[in-house]
C-alpha cells in the first residue's frame, strides 16, 4: 500500500509537479484549518470567562436611585454676554433656565439649548428664555438665528425696556458678524 502511494507521489512528482504541489499545500492548509483546537484570532471585544457559581436565591430588593434634580446653579455673570437682572422664578421653567445658564457658563451650548427648549415648552412666551436662546446661538456663531431670536424676545418683552435694549445690543453685535 505505502509503496503504491509512494509510487503515486513519485508519479505525480515526476509528471505533474506543477499542479499537484500547490494542491497538496492546500490540503495541508485545509487539514490545519479543520483542526478544531487550532486557536483562531479572537474578535477584539472582551470575553468574560463564564462563571459557574450558583446564583443567590434571594433577589436584592431594588434600591431606587434618587431623582436627577435640576439644581438651580449659582449664576456667575457670564463674561462675554451681558447679564440680565432676571432672576428666574422658582418652578420648572426657572429650574431649567438656571440649568441652561449653568451650561452656558460651562460652554456647553448644545446642552443649554436643550434645557431652554424645555423651559420654553413650559413658558412659551417668556422673553428672557428667548433672549437666553439668542445668547446661545450667538455663542454657536449662528448669527442670523441670533438676530431672529432677539426679535422674538423683543416681540414678547412688552414694556421691559432693559430686556429690549439687551436684545438690541446682542442683535447689533450679531449683525456685525453677518
Amino acid at each position: 500500500m505505502s509503496r503504491q502511494i509512494n509510487n503515486i507521489i513519485k508519479f505525480s512528482c515526476n509528471k505533474r509537479v506543477h499542479t499537484t504541489l500547490p494542491i497538496l499545500a492546500l490540503l495541508a492548509l485545509l487539514l490545519n484549518g479543520c483542526a478544531i483546537k487550532q486557536p483562531v484570532q479572537q474578535p477584539a471585544y472582551p470575553t468574560k470567562k463564564p462563571s459557574t457559581h450558583t446564583t443567590p436565591s434571594k433577589r436584592p430588593t431594588p434600591s431606587y436611585p434618587a431623582p436627577q434634580v435640576v439644581q438651580p446653579q449659582p449664576e456667575p455673570s457670564p463674561q462675554t454676554t451681558p447679564a440680565t437682572t432676571y432672576t428666574p422664578k422658582t418652578g420648572a421653567g426657572g429650574a431649567l433656565y438656571s440649568s441652561a445658564q449653568g451650561a452656558i457658563n460651562r460652554g456647553d451650548y448644545q446642552q443649554a439649548e436643550m434645557s431652554l427648549e424645555r423651559a420654553l415648552k413650559i413658558e412659551p412666551r417668556n422673553a428672557h428664555y428667548w433672549y437666553s436662546m439668542a445668547q446661545v446661538k450667538y455663542k454657536q456663531k449662528q448669527y442670523s438665528q441670533t438676530v431672529h431670536l432677539c426679535s422674538k424676545s423683543k416681540s414678547l418683552a412688552g414694556k421691559n425696556s432693559q430686556l429690549i435694549s439687551l436684545n438690541d445690543d446682542l442683535s447689533a453685535k450679531a449683525r456685525q458678524q453677518l
Binding site: I36, Q38, P39, V40, Q42, P43, T47, K48, K49, P50
Partner: peptide, 14 residues
C-alpha cells in the same frame, strides 16, 4: 457550530 465555538467565547455565544 464548531466554527462559532472556535472563534467566539462561550459568553458571547450565550
Amino acid at each position: 457550530a464548531v466554527i462559532l465555538e472556535t472563534r467566539y467565547s462561550k459568553d458571547e455565544i450565550l
